[in-house]
Design a binder for these strands. Structure first.
Lengths: 97, 97
DNA sequence: TTATATTTGCCAATATTTGTCAAGACAATA
DNA sequence: TATTGTCTTGACAAATATTGGCAAATATAA
């Protein structure tokens, strides 16, 4: 249920002593939404990543990579054939497209 | 838009001279749906993979792997950071979970 | 306790997905 | 040409899923 990006966001936020409310206002969302995002209960929108990186002074690419990894995880979790599928995808994207 | 599984299904079906209608009846779906599945225009349900493997005398695991790879592809296509994200996911699933 | 911060459950609005159907395209055959 | 069979396309409403936000519940701290 937990996500890599959610965990990272929470870590960054608490280390900087920011309240949910402060992040929420910049993201134009209810605190409950942010709370759920951090705990992986609600998805984080792709467009919100850059804003979060700004607020939390984090690297956009790093957060975006975590977000992507979460998306992939969501698809392959509990899939016995995940490994094989991932290999095939990696091969495929390496050759142009 | 095209999918690996869709392409494979069509290849198997045509090589065995089966009509969309015949596959459709076994899958309990309209022919138009099967047509779209084969061309990647409609998603193929996970539970339909085993049935398709039966009809087309194909290996269930092989089809399922193609299906999974399609799901992953859908997530990472057009993502510059795909490679990095995939690596991180592979690492993560290799260690237990 | 009181005050503040976070979490949880629920709802209705919105968005997405779904199956179904009819019409269209296309090729082969008469 | 007209007919037949197969496949494709687009549109539609019904079913499903997702969404944001509220307010109550729960934690945390002083």
């Amino acid at each position: 249920m937990a996500t890599q990006l959610g965990d990272k966001i929470r870590e960054l936020r608490t280390k900087q002593n920011l309240l949910l409310r402060q992040v929420a206002s910049k993201l134009d969302a209810d605190t409950s939404i942010i709370s759920k995002m951090e705990r992986g209960e609600r998805p984080i929108k792709k467009e919100q990543i850059a804003i979060l990186a700004d607020i939390l002074k984090a690297d956009k690419e790093e957060l975006h990579t975590l977000w992507l990894a979460d998306q992939v995880m969501d698809v392959i979790k509990d899939e016995p054939l995940a490994d094989e599928a991932l290999k095939s995808v990696s091969k495929k994207i390496k050759k142009g497209k």
